Structures are given as structure tokens and as C-alpha cells.
Simulated scan of single mutants.
Amino acid sequence: MPQLGRLEQWDDARGFGFVRPLASQAGADAPRAFVHVKAIERAGRRPAEGDLVRYEIERDAQGRLNAVGVAFVNASAMRELARSRVDAKSAARDRREAGRRAALLRRLATAAAVAVFVGGWLLGTWPGVVPLFYAALATVSFLAYRHDKVAAEHGRWRTPESTLHAIDLAGGWPGGLLAQQVLRHKSSKRSFQLVFWTTVLLNCAAFAWLLREGVVAQLAQSSPWA
């Protein structure tokens, strides 16, 4: 694997020296490697102590470290490398911030779901079978997510995403939200999240329509929890 280092103890008369990895990559006590002038590709000039180079490591028959594929690193390349590292750190920071916002959204949505379904029952807006129905499907959804996560960790047969979405669409989405938060499963896959939140909206819209049309009351008439 290519790495960056500096030449040290360079003996120009004999054409060899040593290269030590940059401390920012491998630590100040990183082992150095022997480098011969013949290992420097398209040098264009004589090497000098302190030169910054990119190289790879091989071991010789005695197990000693040798630098191969050595190439000088110019200032523009160093600036590009530094810029790429800054961009990578910025991207990682943005991902962490987006993850925190998504986690907060899931927690709020889960709490809101519990408050709405239980509160609606307590206020008499809908029968008790409604929160029980959602609780049952939420349990099924949570277990399905857990099964899929365990299967992924052990290389076993996965639960199709379409199955998870179908359960959530039917009303199990509060359990899906909880599973994503607690198990950290399917919480960062954008394509899955897009479909997941679509199922949430569709289920809520369908429930509102059924409630307005009186279908929920009709279905719950024969329920002992109505």
C-alpha cells in the first residue's frame, strides 16, 4: 500500500539511504525502510535528505524493509493530498451531523406515534383496537428488522427489503423506527429510508381516510377492546 515518507541519512556517493513514514501516518517511532537510488522512479534529479517521497514496502530474504516504487512528491501533489484529507474530514463530519438529525427525527416520530395512537384512544377518538393493532404490527416489524440484522452479521439468508416495507406500510412502521434507532439497522441506507418514509406517509394517510369514512369504527365494533 503506498505511503508517504521522508528520506533520511541519504548517502549520495553510495546511492542509498532510508525513508521513514510521516509521523502523521504511522507515528513518530514508525520503522524506516532501506531505499536505493535504483528504486526511485523517474527521479530527474539526485535524491537529497529530507525529500518527501511516496513509496511501497517489501521485505527482502532477510526480512528487512525495503522501499520500492519510490517517487518524489511535489508541492502541488502535497496540496492536493492535504485538500483531499480536509474534504474527507468535512464529509465525515457532515455524515455524523446528518446521522444525529436522522436519529432525532426517528425518536420524535416514535414518541409522536405512541402519543397519538394511545392519546386518541384515551380521548375516545378511536377504539382501543387501533393502538393494539399498531402495537402488534410494530412488534412484528421490530422482530423482522432484528432477524435481518442478525442474518446480515452471520451471513445467513436476509429478509427482503420489500417484506420490511410491506410490514411498515401495513402499520408496523413505529416498530421499524424503533428498530432503526435501537439496532442501528437500515438507518443510513438512503434508498431504504426514502421508501420507508413513503410507507409511513401512505399508512398515515390511509388511516386518516379510514377514520374519516367511519371504516375504523365499523371494523372495531366486534372487538372486545372497542
Rank of each mutant, 00 (worst) to 15 (best):
G176S: 06
K89A: 13
A151H: 12
S162M: 12
S90H: 12
P47D: 10
P131D: 06
A135K: 10
G99C: 06
L122F: 09
L81Y: 13
A77N: 09
D51I: 01
V130M: 12
A98T: 01
G120D: 09
A39Q: 10
A138Y: 07
A88F: 02
E161Y: 11
R96N: 01
L81S: 06
D60G: 08
K89M: 12
A152D: 14
A92C: 00
H154L: 12
L169H: 00
Y145K: 03
A170Y: 05
N74R: 05
V130L: 15
R156L: 15
D168W: 04
W126Y: 09
R83K: 04
A61C: 08
R146T: 13
A151Y: 12
A113G: 04
R42K: 14
V118N: 11
R64V: 09
R96Y: 06
E56N: 09
V130W: 14
G50L: 07
S90M: 11
I167C: 05
Y55G: 05
F72I: 04
Y55N: 02
R42V: 10
A113T: 08
W173A: 02
L143W: 10
S141K: 04
K38V: 07
L178V: 05
L105A: 03
L169T: 05
L108K: 02
R106A: 07
R83P: 04
T159G: 06
L132G: 15
V129M: 15
R158E: 14
A71N: 04
L169V: 04
A98Y: 06
R146I: 03
D148E: 09
V70D: 03
W157N: 10
V130C: 15
E97F: 11
I57A: 08
G120Y: 06
N74M: 09
V73D: 11
A92S: 02
K38A: 00
A166H: 03
V116I: 14
L137Y: 10
I40E: 07
P131G: 01
V116H: 09
V129Q: 15
E80M: 06
F142A: 01
F133V: 03
W121M: 04
V68P: 04
L81K: 09
F72P: 02
V73I: 13
Q62L: 02
G172A: 02
F142V: 03
V73Q: 12
A152H: 11
T125S: 15
E49P: 04
I57M: 11
